[in-house]
């Protein structure tokens, strides 16, 4: 019984719900222009799924799914995507000017460029927060062993 991470109960629960949590985060971001929420809230929820995986399985195993290079790449992509959305405004007049038809209110495809901006923020915040957590989980020096293993002893 030397597997890293928490007990099998926690692992199995995480296996089932982590995907749903991530999906809920994407949903919150996708409907950000229609209901409360948005890119930031969705990104936080997405990152919570990653945090859950790292906590349950230990940073060593979870590193295959959530690791530093991946977080950097998606973080940069999200930020770049937001900037590209802003720069595309130059097509119709200027920085951050809407360049997509606004559509009908309360429909999913509406709000002009706001959904795109929300998706970019989802990536940025999700990867950024997950990356911050991965960075924190990499530092476990200087703590007594008993505290480090507390999750497994239970």
């Amino acid at each position: 019984m030397s597997q890293p991470g928490m007990t099998i109960i926690v692992k199995n629960t995480t296996r089932i719900i982590a995907g749903f949590i991530a999906l809920f985060g994407v949903y919150i971001a996708l409907t950000g222009h229609l209901s409360p929420g948005g890119g930031f809230a969705g990104g936080v929820i997405l990152a919570a799924a990653a945090v859950l995986v790292v906590l349950a399985f230990g940073s060593g195993f979870a590193g295959r799914i959530v690791n530093e290079p991946k977080c950097h790449i998606w973080d940069g992509t999200g930020a770049m995507g937001f900037l590209v959305v802003a720069l595309c405004g130059y097509i119709t007049g200027g920085f951050f000017v809407n360049f997509i038809p606004i559509g009908t209110a309360h429909h999913l495809l509406s709000g002009g460029m706001i959904p795109l901006a929300n998706l970019a923020i989802l990536l940025k915040v999700g990867a950024g927060l997950a990356g911050a957590f991965v960075a924190l989980s990499a530092f476990k020096y200087g703590r007594p062993r008993s505290i480090r293993r507390v999750g497994r002893e239970l």
């Binding site: 950097h72 790449i73 973080d75 940069g76 992509t77 930020a79 900037l83 720069l87």
Partner: peptide
């Protein structure tokens, strides 16, 4: 800012 993001990517 764009160059910074691109560098991270």
């Amino acid at each position: 800012l764009g160059a910074a993001f691109l560098i991270v990517m």
